[in-house]
């Protein structure tokens, strides 16, 4: 007969199960959705105004004390650069870049500034397993380098290809990305450096909800000047920075296939099964065990202990 008594058996499986309970019960918190802070700030970017002067890049470099660029900020040959066939993207050394696009049938090129869009429900934040990211009530998505382990899941998760990584740092590699000038400006209610520097006011800074009205007004009051879409109003659950344009967005390098829901919504189905597996599996499989082994020998474990006692 079995030497494993019922009590021991339950204790064993409970210990195993309980050890695991810790982690996933926290995962249950992932449910629920977040629409953004009501008074969060944002920036409306009007692509029709941008003339590609790159002053915002210079402003960002100065404000964020970034390393010296490879080329001067008034060198417009950067617009012709291609890396792996791709136009420039933000890196650990440049939190914002301006690219040039040539929309079909347009006389003038179109310029687009790229930086962190400060999502309402950021994918980087929700994918981070040490919670290094924070969406502040002011609307910025900021990052705490002190807890970052360097898994770079946020770079995988970001639908806009924004975060850069200081791969060349040996002892303290970290994520680097636009933080809305949170530390130096946003916290005090001031617009970020790029916005302030722009001679054309391509970017308008304000409360996100106010700016959304302005964006709609501009589209309405200037018939034929804009395509009827605000990129970032709904994309991935809404972004703090959003765009209006005179050319279709895909021709300005925007990914127009992004889901309208936050990225984390894709993951919620999976997160929902976690507590289920945790609670149902132990019962299910111990049940199987009892059924499968009823009336049979309990296997070598017991054979051994039986033998030991025979000595």
């Amino acid at each position: 007969m079995s030497k494993i008594t019922r009590r021991k058996f339950l204790a064993g499986s409970a210990a195993g199960g309980a050890a695991m309970m810790l982690a996933p019960s926290k995962n249950a918190l992932a449910a629920g959705s977040f629409e953004g802070f009501p008074d969060g700030m944002g920036v409306l970017v009007d692509l029709t105004r941008c003339v590609g002067c790159r002053t915002c890049e210079a402003a960002c470099n100065t404000e964020q004390k970034l390393p010296e660029p490879a080329k001067p900020f008034d060198d417009y040959s950067v617009f012709d650069e291609l890396h792996h066939g791709q136009k420039r993207r933000p890196t650990d050394k440049a939190y914002t870049v301006v690219n040039r696009y040539e929309p079909e049938g347009a006389d003038e090129p179109l310029y687009r500034k790229i930086q962190c869009n400060h999502c309402n429900e950021p994918a980087c934040l929700t994918s981070c397993f040490v919670n290094a990211y924070t969406k502040t009530p002011e609307g910025a998505v900021i990052y705490n380098a002190k807890v970052c382990v360097g898994c770079r899941n946020c770079m995988i998760a970001c639908p806009f290809h924004i975060p850069g990584y200081t791969y060349n740092s040996v002892l303290n590699p970290v994520i680097k990305k636009c933080i809305f000038c949170y530390d130096t400006r946003l916290k005090e209610g001031k617009p970020p450096a790029c916005v302030e520097s722009c001679p054309q006011q391509v970017m308008t800074f304000g409360k996100r909800k106010d700016l959304m009205k302005i964006a709609n007004d501009r589209i309405k009051k200037n018939p034929g000047q804009y395509v009827n879409h605000i990129y970032g109003e709904k994309e991935v659950g809404g972004t703090g920075w959003f765009y209006i344009s005179n050319a279709p967005f895909e021709q300005a390098g925007f990914d127009i296939d992004l889901p309208k829901k936050p990225i984390i919504d894709n993951v919620k189905d999976f997160l929902a099964i976690v507590p289920m597996v945790l609670t149902i599996w132990p019962a299910l499989f111990t049940g199987f065990h009892l059924l499968a082994t009823k009336g049979k020998s309990h296997g070598h474990g017991d054979d051994h202990s039986a033998e030991q006692e025979d000595h």
């Binding site: 470099n61 010296e68 001067p72 040959s77």
Partner: peptide, 30 residues
């Protein structure tokens, strides 16, 4: 830009142009 107003020294520093151009730009382009 400079069709209307000439860059000052502070401007060159800001844009990392002119005498403040990055050295890297001299021998490597991209």
């Amino acid at each position: 830009c400079e069709d209307c107003h000439a860059k000052t020294e502070a401007g060159e520093k800001y844009y990392r142009s002119g005498e403040f151009a990055p050295e890297a730009a001299a021998h490597s382009s991209g």
